[in-house]
Amino acid sequence: MTGELERPEGWGDLHQIRGLFDQGLRRLVSKDVRYTIRAGRGGLDETAALFTGEADIAVVTPAAALRLLYRFGDLKGLFALGVIPRRGSLVVAADATLGLDAVADLATHSARITVATCADDGVSLVGFAVHRALRMAGVGGGDVDFVYDEHPAARYASGAADVVIHDPMATPDWRAVVAERQVRYLPWGDRVLHGFAAQGWLPRIARAGQLPPLIDDLPALDCSDFAVLCRADLDEGLARLTARYLARGCCPAEAAAVARTPLPLHPGAARAYAELVADEAVADVSLGSR
């Protein structure tokens, strides 16, 4: 390995993140070290590519879904290089004129409701979470109609759906979406939040004012963070360099967040974060001695 990676000022969406990895690593990694970064949908297609050897590094979101699947035993053999922090919440936004008060009301409304969200297709982790949560809330596939889209907010804005379930933080034009129609955010309910929390998927509060036109804090499902994953056989030097890339330029609290991964750290990444902590401690001592 040669050189250090400069961490960009800001991270974009999934495809931009992969592009930054590719550009930075290929520029600085020794030519005899070969690797592939998967360019898929950021879900279980990415983990499958790791298992089959199609990819050496994958970026998957949200991290909470990986934590849950790891507890189920589905991801044994995979390791993490770090996370790219991005705060997000899985929320339910409904047409306010429907008069719905909670997610459970979707099953009992007098008119049939169309929900725009991601499909539970064995790839999308958002779709996996949405349909699992709906079942916990007592909403079955026969209670509502679904329209599936990787970016479902546009279906709501166009009038093709009455409800959208997604992460508004992953929708750059969310303000424009909700400006098209009156929106009411529906609580998932304790049964859903407690059920997910019991399996390690903790809730996240969408704060009042964070989402238009949210006027009260809304307990939602956590939909944060891009996790950077690999197999155990990833070159240790590459793992170390990638971890330093993720953490470089972070303050100590941010670096700790980068290393707070849903899967165990690859040994090379663990070494890199330990070195960063040691470097920080040495710097603190040096500054204190002046």
Rank of each mutant, 00 (worst) to 15 (best):
R41K: 03
A104V: 13
P8C: 04
R207G: 12
Y185D: 03
P262D: 06
P213F: 03
D216C: 12
C250M: 09
A176T: 15
D56M: 08
L276V: 09
S124T: 08
M1N: 05
A256D: 11
H151M: 11
E275Q: 15
R86Y: 03
T114P: 00
P152K: 09
R204F: 06
G99E: 03
E275M: 12
E280K: 00
W201E: 05
L44D: 07
I57V: 12
K31S: 15
G12V: 11
R207N: 05
A281C: 00
V163H: 01
R260Y: 09
R112Q: 07
R132K: 10
Y70N: 08
E150A: 12
G77A: 10
D13F: 07
V258G: 03
D225M: 11
A179P: 02
G142F: 04
G127V: 08
R135A: 15
R112F: 02
Q16L: 08
G82S: 10
R71K: 11
A220L: 09
G209K: 07
R27L: 14
I37F: 02
V228H: 00
I57C: 00
Y70L: 07
C230E: 01
V282T: 15
P252E: 07
A255P: 01
L106F: 02
P219M: 09
L202H: 13
A208K: 12
V178F: 02
T52E: 11
L98M: 11
V130D: 02
A55G: 10
M1T: 12
A278H: 14
W174S: 00
V258D: 03
S158H: 02
R240Y: 14
A58F: 09
H131Q: 03
D190N: 04
L234E: 02
G249W: 04
I205F: 14
Q16S: 12
A272L: 10
A283M: 08
A259Y: 03
P267F: 12
V60N: 03
G195V: 13
V144R: 00
A93Y: 06
S289D: 09
I113A: 08
P267N: 10
R7V: 06
G127P: 00
